[in-house]
Write a protein that binds this DNA or RNA. Structure first.
Lengths: 330, 330
DNA sequence: TTGTAAGCGTTATCAC
DNA sequence: GTGATAACGCTTACAA
């Protein structure tokens, strides 16, 4: 690999001048500039990023932490972030936490070791107190997650409103026995707390009390959805509708429903979350809460870059609206 | 950030000894080792990777180039590679080429600039001649792509067999008018050439000649699938079955079919490719060609690491079998 | 077993 | 406008 010294030799100018050309400094004579450019071209020279990083430059790399890339919500999010970053000249270091605390910390270390200028976290496994110290080494932006006590910028969707709208829609359709799947544990301060509130609030307004046996916790995948359907079938008092935490779970429910001859929405109405491409492909089409993934991804990158350019920027929270998409499953 | 000199100061030993501890050198007295370990702990020290890279160490980073992460085939592939890499202590630099030649080259430069030890390419946009020079700087492994003249290790699936099996299955079901969607241009040496051969071969064996107006090129997405369905509806002589290049296209076809009252498989049999989760969720369930994504991802990482550990290793090609999954759409 | 010192490729500082 | 030089944090001969 050609390095800066090779360029120096070939061009006949000093190392500093070469560096200046590389970094587009204003006051260089055209003559020398040409010389350097030509040499760089000839040698097929590319500056060594490790050296630049070591020297304390920006790394032009941002890390993005996702729990599971195979979840379409996150793959679309990563897609949006990567595109926005690339346009601004940033590389994307992709980190999959697999919902593992240790792994998350490993990735946060990228910041400490100056391998990434900043990090976008789309999920949070550790407590804020654990994450907080890392903010000393560079900006962190939460995208899709919200931690009220955290002092970082956050881009989020109105999860409360999403759940509220969805459940209210079911109530308007005449349902009163509404089950609820959540990726969390249905605790007041834990994961998915806002959705929980939305669910509870909508029921409350309709004078319905929550039936704990219809609250199904820690559900994530298609397989989980299938299992949930079986659980429902075994209940003596069955719900007539289910609000699921994702289109994937909803899809799992629908597969199992079909197997067991349960008609949707006749026997059971189902509502998803995300509006992934599959929502439209399912039969019947899945009523769901659309999350504007592209927008939050883009916004997250924008905000991160702002923080990078202005370290004194005060963290802010941005909330984007979600939308109820009514199809045939409700 | 604490650096090695801080550790030196706190522990009272020399820089080299600290370095030796970091790198697990064998012959160090337990006494000093303890001292160093304690200091590292106390300072919350993490070695600076940029410095290590600059010094010529392995970067413990591998790059993985995908065309589009939102395609589930690739998100599952990335997932498998990332997991395998993490286990071996490698970070994954995620690169999305968006099927753009320039962008692909930008990413290959990671190798030149020693930001990545090696690269896994899951798609190839540039000609081999353009890519070839980059192999000087580190191993490249093709995963899912095959270029006969390329001198790199390749992990691939038997695409010929996949297409052949699928089309043969349609023929056995009594179809003779079989349309074909491809992501490429149906050329003898271009993209998807093996699948093209499989399609042609299966027809040939049944004494059927290819009808060019049923060959639909450059199809990739759900939207493409919807368009294809409309195209088919406008044909005077309609095919009775379609072999698609991916489950996404098949899904698009099915959405549009439903809209237009076309019965599947009655009016039109559809066969997908990949066996993505959605294949099972579609109604009717999608007959498709299963690609063992996890396996090829894992294998690709294994092979890359072998090359990394043994630079003289002769490139080899590994071919994994695909499988016909029969559901209700054929 | 341990320490000293050179060097990886850059860029920032200072002098000219 | 240009050039010499030090420094970033680390590893590795070489010496002791």
């Amino acid at each position: 690999m050609a390095n800066i010294s090779d360029v120096v030799r070939l061009s006949g100018v000093s190392k500093s001048t070469v560096s200046r050309v590389i970094n587009n400094y204003p006051h260089i004579s055209n003559e020398k500039k040409e010389l350097v450019l030509k040499a760089m071209e000839e040698l097929n020279y590319t500056p060594n990023l490790s050296a630049r990083r070591l020297r304390g430059q920006a790394t032009t790399t941002i890390g993005i932490i996702v729990p599971r890339i195979v979840n379409p919500f996150f793959s679309y999010l990563v897609d949006a972030i990567e595109k926005a970053g690339y346009q601004q000249g940033y590389q994307t270091l992709f980190c999959q936490s697999n919902e593992d605390k240790e792994k998350e910390l490993t990735f946060l270390n990228l910041l400490k070791t100056k391998q990434a200028d900043g990090i976008i976290m789309t999920s949070i496994e550790n407590d804020w107190e654990v994450i907080k110290p890392y903010t000393e080494h560079g900006p962190i932006v939460f995208c899709n997650e919200y931690v009220s006590e955290a002092n970082v910028s956050m881009i989020r969707l109105d999860q409360y409103q999403g759940a509220y709208m969805g459940v209210k829609h079911l109530i308007e359709r005449g349902h009163r026995k509404i089950a609820y799947c959540t990726g969390g544990l249905f605790t007041e301060f834990g994961k998915d707390k806002d959705r929980n509130r939305g669910y509870q609030r909508a029921l409350e307004e309709a004078g319905i009390t929550v039936n704990p046996s219809w609250v199904l916790v820690n559900q994530h995948t298609i397989e989980d959805g299938k299992r949930v359907m079986k659980q429902i079938l075994e209940m003596n008092d069955r719900p007539t509708a289910v609000f699921t935490g994702s289109d994937e779970i909803a899809g799992g429910l629908m597969i199992a429903a079909k197997e067991h001859g349960i008609s949707i929405p006749g026997d059971l109405a189902i509502i998803g979350f995300d509006d992934q491409p599959v929502a439209e492909m399912l039969d019947p089409g899945l009523t769901t809460i659309r999350q504007p993934v592209d927008q939050i991804g883009k916004k997250a990158m924008e905000v991160l870059v702002e923080h990078l350019n202005n370290p004194d920027l005060v963290p802010a929270t941005y909330e984007l609206p979600v939308e109820l998409i009514i199809r045939k499953s409700t």
